[in-house]
Computed example of a mutant assay.
Amino acid sequence: MIMARFTPGRQAKPTRGTDTFSRIADIDLYAWVAQAEDGDALIYHRGFLVVDADRTVSTLPADRRLAVRGLADAAFRAAEQGLVHLVQERVGPNRFAYLAIARPKPKAAAASLSALLLDEQAA
């Protein structure tokens, strides 16, 4: 998991020799969201997310493709809950770094963040 403080205009640097897809799972993303401070950033995927998650065009094995799809869905749920901003940065031809940037935590959250995310996932 790559985590850093987000600085506008700072390039997300690709790591040489890594896979084009993420090795974190949706539960890792949720754990990061729960502990991240406002402005922290997580690169949750590198590659071309829409292609990597698509059943017809992805070259990933089925289990990895499904994991990428689950991670993308988890990131979207966190964004819908107002917990993160989702951004992407081009790092090469047809290659992007997908970042989740932590937003300020809700002040009047009666339930824990993990409960909010898990409730949304169950719906």
Rank of each mutant, 00 (worst) to 15 (best):
Arg16Lys: 13
Arg16Asp: 11
Arg16Leu: 10
Gly17Asp: 12
Gly17Gln: 09
Gly17Thr: 03
Thr18Val: 13
Asp19Gln: 11
Asp19Ala: 15
Asp19Arg: 15
Asp19Ile: 10
Thr20Gln: 13
Thr20Tyr: 14
Thr20Cys: 05
Phe21Glu: 08
Phe21Asp: 09
Ser22Ile: 00
Ser22Gln: 05
Ser22Ala: 14
Ser22Pro: 05
Arg23Cys: 06
Arg23Asn: 12
Ile24Arg: 02
Ile24Pro: 01
Ile24Asp: 00
Ala25Arg: 13
Asp26Tyr: 06
Asp26Asn: 11
Asp26His: 13
Ile27Asn: 08
Ile27Met: 11
Ile27Cys: 11
Ile27Trp: 03
Asp28Gly: 10
Asp28Val: 03
Leu29Trp: 05
Leu29Gly: 01
Leu29Val: 03
Leu29Ser: 04
Tyr30Cys: 02
Ala31Cys: 13
Ala31Pro: 02
Trp32Thr: 03
Trp32Lys: 01
Trp32Leu: 04
Trp32Tyr: 04
Trp32His: 00
Val33Trp: 00
Val33Cys: 07
Ala34Trp: 00
Ala34Thr: 14
Ala34Arg: 05
Ala34Ser: 08
Gln35Trp: 02
Ala36Gly: 09
Ala36Lys: 04
Ala36Ser: 13
Glu37Met: 12
Glu37Pro: 01
Asp38Cys: 11
Gly39Val: 06
Gly39Asp: 05
Asp40Asn: 11
Ala41Phe: 02
Ala41Met: 08
Ala41Arg: 06
Leu42Asp: 02
Leu42Cys: 15
Leu42Ala: 04
Leu42Pro: 02
Ile43Lys: 00
Ile43Leu: 09
Ile43Pro: 00
Ile43Phe: 00
Ile43Cys: 13
Tyr44Thr: 03
His45Gln: 10
His45Thr: 06
Arg46Ile: 12
Arg46Leu: 08
Gly47Lys: 01
Gly47Cys: 04
Gly47Pro: 05
Phe48Trp: 09
Leu49Thr: 04
Leu49Gln: 06
Val50Gly: 06
Val50Asn: 10
Val50Met: 09
Val50Ile: 04
Val50Ser: 09
Val51Ile: 15
Val51Arg: 12
Val51Tyr: 09
Val51Phe: 12
Asp52Gly: 07
Asp52Gln: 12
Ala53Lys: 03
Ala53Phe: 01
Ala53His: 01
Asp54His: 14
Arg55Gln: 12
Arg55Asp: 14
Arg55Ser: 12
Arg55Tyr: 09
Thr56Tyr: 06
Thr56Ser: 13
Thr56Asp: 15
Thr56Glu: 12
Thr56Ala: 14
Val57Gly: 04
Val57Leu: 12
Leu60Asn: 12
Pro61Tyr: 05
Pro61Asn: 10
Ala62Gln: 13
Ala62Thr: 13
Asp63Tyr: 15
Arg64Cys: 00
Arg65Thr: 06
Arg65Asn: 08
Arg65Phe: 07
Arg65His: 05
Arg65Gln: 15
Leu66Thr: 06
Ala67Ile: 02
Ala67Lys: 05
Ala67Met: 14
Arg69Tyr: 01
Arg69Trp: 08
Gly70Asn: 14
Ala72Glu: 05
Ala72Tyr: 02
Ala72Met: 13
Asp73Gln: 14
Asp73Tyr: 06
Ala74Gln: 02
Ala74Pro: 07
Ala74Asp: 03
Ala74Thr: 06
Ala74Trp: 01
